[in-house]
Every structure is written in C-alpha cells, then in structure tokens.
C-alpha cells in the first residue's frame, strides 16, 4: 500500500502520459501501435495543422476483454522550445463504440455495442540526453465500466546520435490503474529510433512483454 501511495505521488508529479507525441507536422500521417499488459492499440492520425491531428483508434482492453473502435482528436495545447530541450502539453478526446471481443460463433447473449468516450492529457520534456513524460486517461466504456489511469516515464540516451543515425534510449515506465486488480506496475524498455521509425520493446514487473511502434509518413 505504501508502495502504491509513493508511486501515485510520483505519477502525479508528471501529470501526463507515456504515449509518444500525438501531433506531427502539418499534412503528416502517423501510425502508432502499442502492445502491453493493458492493451493492444492502433492509432492512425493525420495532422491537419500545427496543433491538431485527427485519426482512427482501435484498442483492445486485455483485462476486460472488449474492443474500442472510434475517432480520436489530439491537440497540442502548449509547446516550449529552448536551444537544448522541448516540452509539450497535449490533450486528446476520443469517441466510438465498445464491443465484446468474442467470436460471433460463441453466441454470447450479451454480445452488443455501447457508446464510449475517453479523455486524456499528456506532457513530456525532452533533451537529447533525458526524457520525462506523464499522462492521465479517463475512459467511459459503457457497460464495460469506467477506467482511469496514470502513466509516467523517464529515459536516458546512453549516447547522443546525430540526424539519421540510430538513437537509443533506456527507459522505465510506471503506471497506476486504480480500477485494476494490480493497481500499480512498472516496465523497463529500450527505445530505438531512426529516421521516421520508432520501436520500443521491454517487459513489465509481471513478465508481460511490451512492443510499441511509431512511424511518421
């Protein structure tokens, strides 16, 4: 319990998300895939101006066994650029439907869809050596219930790579999900970053692997 409280405080210090930047450059497309103990998620978005992107999101909630399918709007609320760093604050909102992830052949009586909504806020601060981010999300999943989560992440680059070279980051991520049986958890991961592609792989404290991928077009 004490561990949970400490982690919660740490997460609150970084009041936004571990997800990568959801707004690209104007007229740019981005594919974001996230796979971990909590979810399998795919988000494709189009950035239509400097501060907004819109796209489609499909997310499978692994613990509750349902699928969200809907649209997501991302907004860059604030960016601060300095010579050696960049800090961002993002908001996002999504709306769609949730449904059982069951084979239709199983003939489940409750197989149906509900409307769903989610809200998120995330922030990050990054230099070429250090990275910190945090996020908060709220989901209303209709008959599948409501969920809240906080994530934070810290990373360090063991070497500084220039344009086009392979960039490597070593990161740790913590989460707090008060609605889950395991409220708190942590992951260790490696981020590899080259040109328009970003790949992350790692494992959480329960041994569940994570694999994330981002590509900007």
């Amino acid at each position: 319990m004490r561990y949970s409280a400490i982690l919660f405080i740490i997460l609150m210090l970084f009041p936004a998300a571990a997800s990568a930047r959801p707004v690209s450059y104007p007229e740019g497309w981005t594919l974001m895939l996230r796979n971990d103990a909590d979810q399998n998620s795919a988000h494709v978005h189009y950035t239509f101006d400097t501060k907004h992107s819109i796209g489609a999101r499909v997310r499978y909630d692994r613990s509750r066994d349902f699928v969200f399918t809907g649209a997501q709007l991302n907004r860059l609320i604030k960016r601060r650029n300095t010579r050696d760093s960049q800090a961002n604050l993002y908001g996002r909102i999504g709306a769609g439907v949730v449904s059982d992830d069951k084979d239709p052949g199983e003939n489940r009586a409750k197989r149906d869809t509900d409307a769903a909504l989610f809200l998120g806020l995330s922030a990050d601060w990054e230099t070429r050596r250090y990275f910190v981010s945090g996020s908060a999300e709220y989901w209303d999943n209709g008959r599948f219930g409501q969920t809240k989560s906080l994530h934070s992440r810290a990373g360090i680059a063991p070497y500084i790579a220039n344009t086009g070279a392979l960039h490597t980051w070593l990161m740790v991520e913590g989460h707090y999900r008060p609605d889950d049986a395991d409220e708190t958890g942590a992951s260790a991961l490696v981020r590899l970053f080259k040109g328009p592609s970003l790949l992350e792989f790692g494992v959480d404290d329960r041994g569940t692997p994570l694999l994330n991928y981002i590509h900007r077009y």
Binding site: Y25, Q86, T163, G164, H167, F193
Partner: peptide, 20 residues
C-alpha cells in the same frame, strides 16, 4: 539556427515542411 531540435522526428518535420 533553431530552438527545440531534440530528435529525428524534428528533422523530418522541418525537411517535409520546407521541401513543399
């Protein structure tokens, strides 16, 4: 000379924007 350049996504954003 620019502020805010921290990663390759930054360079891609600038290249794509100016090449148009």
């Amino acid at each position: 000379e620019l502020n805010g350049l921290v990663c390759d996504f930054c360079s891609i954003a600038l290249n794509k924007t100016f090449k148009k």
